[in-house]
Design a protein around this nucleic acid. Structure first.
Length: 281
DNA sequence: TACATATGATCAT
DNA sequence: TGATCCTATGTAA
């Protein structure tokens, strides 16, 4: 569940289950926050929220459970009772009367107070929240256009959590395709309106992904594909993980490659390298 | 069994 | 920019 929309959905589901409840039991795997169960058990949970790709569970009295899923962590909600066995490593579980929230595989699990939260090295570097309901295109465009970023490649720029918090690799590939831009492009060499176009695309695709649990493809196209029996994975993306398949816009096979240190997918015709600008969708 | 890969991030350079 | 870490998964051998 690693990118902004997935983390925010998890936070909202956890909040619906946990907010206001006093956990009857908090279960920790060996080595996870040793001895801290007692500090959390019976203590009312105030809320669960997302910051960047981290998830914060706030307990009454100022204790905050910080978790980051990196590439592989996963939250699941289970009915009341023991957590069923799983091939994944259960790291912690919060048991309430209405159900249990279980975190698997994640390694970054910390207990913080407000002071440590403010000084947390990951959280302190985060830019504004992409999925904050009040977020505006203009804010994102202004941050992308900061002069110090002019020389960064677009792939690296969009994924830098200090520019805007919440974008990851799949959203980045989808945004660049949507804007007709090559991942190795640089704002300094592109038309002036490029940051505004990127910002609009980022906001639209991230919000759609949140709403649809991960679909960045055109929704009518995704629905048509579903009718023809396509799996969720096969219909959700515009280019991401579609290497070798025809581009939805022009039919050219999608290319896969490393760009700015990350694996990326693009249409070589719709997103040409060394070109100022790019086709609008 | 081994290896490559991954929706992430940090650190050294 | 590249190496490295974390855990899980899919594929090749």
């Amino acid at each position: 569940m690693p990118e902004g929309p997935e983390i925010r959905r998890a936070a909202d589901r956890l909040a619906a289950l946990l907010a206001g409840c006093r956990p009857e039991r908090v279960e920790m795997a060996p080595g996870v926050l040793p001895g801290m169960e007692r500090r959390l058990q019976g203590r009312r949970i105030v809320d669960v929220s997302a910051r960047g790709k981290a998830l914060l569970t706030r307990f009454e009295g100022g204790t905050i459970l910080y978790t980051h899923n990196q590439l592989y962590g996963r939250w699941e909600i289970h009915p009341p009772g023991p957590i069923p066995p799983s091939s994944r490593a259960l790291r912690l579980a919060i048991h309430c009367r209405e159900g249990a929230a279980a975190l698997y595989s994640a390694t970054e699990i910390e207990l913080l107070d407000e002071e440590r939260l403010a000084a947390h090295p990951y959280l302190a570097r985060l830019g504004p929240e992409l999925l904050d309901p009040a977020m505006e295109e203009r804010t994102i465009a202004e941050r992308l256009a900061l002069p110090r970023f002019g020389r960064r490649c677009l792939m690296g720029l969009l994924q830098d959590q200090s520019v805007v918090a919440g974008l990851g690799n799949y959203l980045c590939c989808e945004i660049l395709f949507d804007c007709g831009l090559h991942p190795s492009g640089r704002l300094g060499t592109l038309p002036e309106e490029t940051p505004v176009r990127l910002a609009a695309s980022a906001l639209r695709l991230a919000r759609q992904s949140y709403r649809t649990a991960g679909i960045t493809n055109d929704l009518r196209r995704a629905a048509a594909l579903e009718k023809r029996g396509a799996s969720f994975e096969a219909r959700r993306f515009l280019v991401y993980r579609r290497g070798g398949l025809p581009c939805y816009r022009c039919g050219t096979p999608i290319e896969k490659g490393r760009y700015c240190g990350r694996m990326g997918y693009l249409c070589p015709r719709c997103q040409p390298a060394n070109q100022a600008g790019g086709a609008a969708p």
